[in-house]
């Protein structure tokens, strides 16, 4: 059985190529502790460099304020309620959009995936619609919804829907025919088969879709706020930039980066939790 891991997911136009990761070789040469130490050292070096470069004048401080200044600005922001409102708006656009896309993609994906005729008749349309960049919809979103959260949602849903939908299709197609036949021979009905055979096999793919979709959803949520001006961190950044508040721009970028990291870590943790049975299966095959 193939397993989607990290970023090897390769939904491909026109071909049946499920997402997959390769079995990893033996682990890193360094034990965990020293790796973490190196990582901390690396981050510290980066911050130090960021601090020193503008202070010594190697880079103009107007363009790159030193790390301490940016982090102080960020710290001050953390105390302002408006910042948290913006964070909330961003997360709301992201989460709501992702949830809508997820529900739609999983439902449609399972229906279309398990009816071959539907699959063949929708394939060409999907292959055409999927690569359309969702930013193309920005003008439409502005006309239809203005700076309302629905503008953000339109972009977020469109972008993340395809990521999840394609993975679900792959997942449903990857069901082990033997498992399916076994279930049939025991007289399981269609719904029971979906519940006990199709869903568990497709789950790794669904989660890969969620991971890719979550990242894309965040990008589009911020994009919508930047370009359309719907409230959120993106809009705050645009405002700070037009006001020439460089340190604040950097501080807000760091904040969005932090949210990005949290989203990644969160989805990965979810994946590990839900798929722990699956990784153990994979470990056996790898041996």
């Amino acid at each position: 059985m193939t397993t989607p891991t990290t970023d090897t997911a390769r939904p491909t136009t026109g071909s049946q190529r499920p997402a997959e990761g390769r079995v990893r070789g033996p682990g890193a040469a360094f034990p965990f502790g020293s790796n973490a130490l190196l990582g901390i050292a690396g981050s510290a070096c980066f911050l130090l460099l960021w601090e020193i470069a503008p202070r010594t004048g190697a880079v103009s401080a107007t363009y790159l304020p030193p790390a301490s200044e940016v982090l102080t600005t960020l710290g001050e922001r953390l105390l302002v309620a408006g910042f948290w409102v913006a964070v909330g708006d961003t997360l709301a656009g992201w989460g709501l959009g992702l949830a809508i896309a997820f529900t739609a993609a999983v439902t449609l994906g399972f229906v279309v995936g398990s009816v071959p005729a539907l699959r063949t008749f929708t394939a060409s349309t999907v292959e055409f619609l999927r690569p359309i960049p969702s930013v193309a919809l920005i003008p439409l979103a502005i006309l239809l919804y203005g700076t309302d959260i629905r503008s953000t949602l339109l972009l977020v849903v469109y972008a993340s829907f395809w990521q999840i939908y394609i993975q679900v299709l792959y997942g449903v197609a990857d069901v082990d025919p033997v498992a399916d036949q076994t279930a049939r021979s025991y007289g399981l009905g269609r719904l029971a088969r979906i519940r006990y055979v199709v869903w568990p096999s497709a789950l790794p793919y669904v989660l890969t879709g969620v991971r890719l979709g979550a990242a894309v959803a965040l990008i589009l949520a911020v994009t919508a706020q930047l370009t359309i001006g719907s409230p959120g961190l993106g809009q705050e950044i645009a405002v700070a930039q037009s006001g020439g508040a460089t340190a604040l721009v950097y501080a807000l970028i760091v904040a969005t980066g932090a949210i990005g990291v949290l989203v990644n870590v969160g989805v990965r943790a979810l994946e590990r939790r839900v798929l722990h049975w699956h990784t153990s299966v994979r470990g056996e095959i790898a041996a």
């Binding site: 994009t223 370009t227 993106g234 970028i253």
Partner: peptide, 13 residues
């Protein structure tokens, strides 16, 4: 993890 579009205002500066 930084959503790339936020770099637009930065690079404009």
């Amino acid at each position: 993890a930084i959503p790339p579009p936020v770099l637009v205002p930065l690079l404009m500066l």
